[in-house]
Structure formats: C-alpha cells, structure tokens
Simulated assay, not measured.
Amino acid sequence: MQPDVATATSNNSLLKTDSQSQNAASVAWALRNSSKKWVLQSTAQTENSIFTEEDKKTWEACKEAVSTFNFSGEEANKVLGKAFGQVHSPYWGEERKKVVPKLETIDEILDYLRSLSLSDDDLAKLLKKFPEVLGCDLEVDIKGNVQILENEWGIKGKTLRNLLLRNPRVLGYNIDCKGDCMAQCTRCWARF
C-alpha cells in the first residue's frame, strides 16, 4: 500500500506552517522585548529632558545616596524612578505623580530603616525588592505599618528585620479591604 501523495503533501505543509509560526512567534517575542527596553530608555531620556537644572542636581544627589548600596547608576535611576513615578510601577498604579525626590526625605527613610536593625546590605536587598519604599510617606505609611506590625501582630526586633527582608512591601501597605476587595491589591494588608 502506497501513502497518499495528497496526505503526505498536506502533512509537510503543516510541518512547515508549524515551524514558520514558531519562528514568527520567536521573532515577535524578540521584537516585543527589545521594544520594551527601548521604551524604558526613551522614557528616561524624555523625563531627564523635562527636569530643570536644579531638579537634575537633586536627582543626582539622590542617585548618589542610593548608589551607596552598590547599585550601578542605571540601577539607582531605576530605584528612584519606580519610587517617584518616573518609571511605571504596579505598586502605585496610575495614582503616582511624577516628582523629583528630596534628598532629606530619602535620608530620613533610610535612617529610620537602619534603626530597625537593617544593615546596608539588608537595605540593598530591600530596595531591590521594593524600591517604592523611598516614595512612601515616612510617618503615615512606613512608621504606621511598623507600629501595626508591632502592636497588632507582635512582630518586633529580629523577627521584624527578617519579615522586612522577606516581604518589604508590608512597609507600603495602606489599605485593609477586610475581604471586600478595593482593587488595590498591591497595597492591601490582605496580602500579609
């Protein structure tokens, strides 16, 4: 019995179509990823062009403060960008306005975090996981959340340090939906 020529031809065309679609998919993936990189870089260039000279100096001073944790210049820009709305972050959603950070505010936040027994190595890990902490309100969000952890959960000292290294986002939680979702899950205590 000989194979049907029409069947063999259609099977070959299916194989070609599958390999062509796989090639097309990999090309599309590569284009998507390269364009994302381009968008991030072009966004940073655009944002830098709308800064005043004083804003640029302030940004550079803040970047230097963040760079003390062994971040490259690009990484420091990304940390500050996510914290202050220059780079999109799911944590903020659409509500974060683009602002220029203040060195005093960053120093106060870093000093407070150090007072929680976090070393500079710990802070580097925390900032990599949750750079947005630098854009949070020190009194309301950060200190308020540490108080909640201490008073309501009994988490203090070394246990608090370990928790912050594992889940630093807890410093920025500012909503407790108590099961009635408010569609701000990235900032909700329900995640804790």
Rank of each mutant, 00 (worst) to 15 (best):
S72E: 05
K98V: 15
L80A: 02
N70Y: 11
R96Y: 11
V99S: 12
V79N: 03
E53A: 10
V66P: 01
S35A: 15
Q45W: 07
G93V: 07
F51D: 07
V79T: 06
W92I: 07
K63C: 01
A25C: 11
A83C: 01
Y91A: 09
T46K: 12
P90N: 14
S89M: 10
L80Q: 00
S89R: 10
G73N: 02
A30N: 06
A25W: 03
S26R: 10
K63W: 01
K56E: 09
G93C: 08
T43S: 10
H88S: 15
E47C: 04
E53L: 09
S21P: 03
L31T: 13
G85S: 07
T46S: 14
H88A: 15
K56V: 11
N33W: 06
K57C: 02
A28K: 11
F71Q: 06
K82W: 02
N48C: 02
D55T: 10
F84W: 06
S35Y: 14
K37F: 12
K82A: 03
D55F: 02
F51L: 11
V66Q: 02
K56A: 11
L31F: 14
K98C: 14
E95T: 11
E54F: 09
T58R: 08
N77C: 10
V66A: 04
V100K: 08
Y91F: 13
K57F: 01
E60Q: 14
A83R: 07
P90T: 15
K57D: 05
E53M: 05
V100H: 06
T68Y: 04
V39H: 02
T58G: 04
S26D: 10
S26W: 11
L80N: 05
G93L: 03
G85Q: 04
V79K: 04
A44D: 12
S49Y: 08
F84D: 00
A61F: 08
L80Y: 04
K82Q: 05
P90S: 15
D55S: 13
Y91I: 08
A76G: 02
N48M: 07
A30H: 13
W29F: 13
E64N: 04
N70T: 12
A25T: 08
G85N: 05
A30Q: 09
A30G: 09
L40P: 02
A25Q: 11
E74T: 12
T68P: 00
R32M: 09
P90Y: 12
W92L: 07
S35T: 11
T58L: 11
C62P: 04
V39C: 01
F51S: 08
K36A: 04
S35W: 09
